[in-house]
């Protein structure tokens, strides 16, 4: 395919040609280590997972070919539908809320440059640096019967609301979602802050001369001009919401009942506990395809119109 590329109209001198050719190939050589690692540890395992999804396999004995049987089970599973709904709810907490918060903060900071921006950025970004397992354990304490949340509620006279939040059928999913918001908001904020620094300050000044207030500025300048950053933030956070596992696993393990079960938890249970590696693989493939589709839609929608 590469060989039929059109030949240059005027052949360059031989020496230059050779040099250019070498440069082209040396480029690929630079890429090789990363490409090799990526192929070995990402592409091949992913293909292997897809391959396994066509078998009934308990992980030990000989597998038997299942065709599309595992995929039929995935579609028919009522527990999976509930898990998908929970993941959908988590998008609200992992994407919508953090992006809204991030935008408002970025707008406030962008209106007037303040000192100590680097400190604010570092503090806000901190949750992103912590391992999610540590985050989960910390929030388990925060939500516990005698935890921070309940202590605060009692202190302000709302003691009758105090409860073990992660054990509540009504609140567990919200509680997990709030942890997600806490983790992801910093990332969004930092993304948007760097985005606002790209926006020419004169645009704000011009709009102020035209009599625009802070709200008008936010809607007409900050949000439209941050569009590329919003697209990136949306992609990253939606992926985090749909593929969430560690946070849920550490805080509730899917409970109480099945109120916080997400697809990641189901895959883990099927593969490592339930001895259904094929079904788990099929579920993983479906989840990956769904995430691909969602991200594709986000990229399409956010592309700037010419």
């Amino acid at each position: 395919m590469l060989d039929i590329a059109p030949a240059p109209v005027t052949a360059p001198p031989r020496a230059r040609q050779r040099r250019r050719r070498r440069r082209r190939w040396s480029g690929l050589l630079y890429l090789a280590p990363a490409l090799l690692l990526y192929t070995l540890f990402t592409v091949l395992p992913a293909l292997h997972t897809a391959y396994l999804s066509f078998f009934n396999w308990d992980g030990v004995t000989l597998p038997s070919f299942a065709g599309l049987g595992n995929y039929r089970s995935v579609v028919a599973d009522p527990e999976l539908r509930a898990a998908a709904e929970h993941a959908g709810t988590l998008i609200l907490f992992f994407s919508v809320l953090p992006i809204a918060l991030g935008l408002v903060c970025a707008a406030i900071v962008a209106r007037r440059r303040r000192r100590g921006l680097a400190v604010i950025r570092a503090v806000v970004f901190l949750p992103q640096v912590l391992p999610l397992v540590a985050v989960g354990i910390i929030w388990r304490w925060v939500y516990a019967e005698q935890g921070t949340v309940n202590q605060v509620l009692q202190a302000v006279g709302l003691g009758r609301w105090a409860q073990a939040w992660l054990g509540s059928f009504d609140w567990a999913l919200v509680a997990v979602g709030v942890v997600g918001t806490w983790v992801v908001s910093g990332l969004c904020m930092v993304l948007f802050l760097s985005g606002t620094q790209r926006i020419d300050g004169e645009i704000y000044e011009a709009s102020r001369v035209d009599g625009a207030g802070p709200v008008r500025e936010f809607l007409s300048i900050t949000v439209p001009l941050l569009r590329p950053e919003i697209a990136v933030a949306l992609s990253i956070t939606v992926i985090a919401a749909l593929s969430s596992f560690d946070l849920v696993y550490i805080t509730t393990g899917g409970g109480p009942g099945t109120t916080t079960v997400v697809p990641g938890i189901l895959i883990y249970r099927l593969a490592f506990g339930g001895g259904a590696v094929g079904l788990a693989s099929a579920l993983a493939v479906v989840l990956t395809l769904v995430i691909f589709a969602v991200v594709l839609v986000i990229t399409r929608l956010s592309r700037e119109r010419p």
Binding site: D3, A5, A7, P8, R22, W25, A32, L35, L36
Partner: peptide, 24 residues
């Protein structure tokens, strides 16, 4: 888009690809 090899066959490309294939 940069055409990888506008002219002829690059020896180094084949070497690289066979190397990758072998590793695989």
């Amino acid at each position: 888009r940069t055409p990888l090899s506008p002219i002829g066959r690059g020896f180094s490309r084949r070497a690289l690809l066979s190397g990758l294939a072998a590793a695989g």
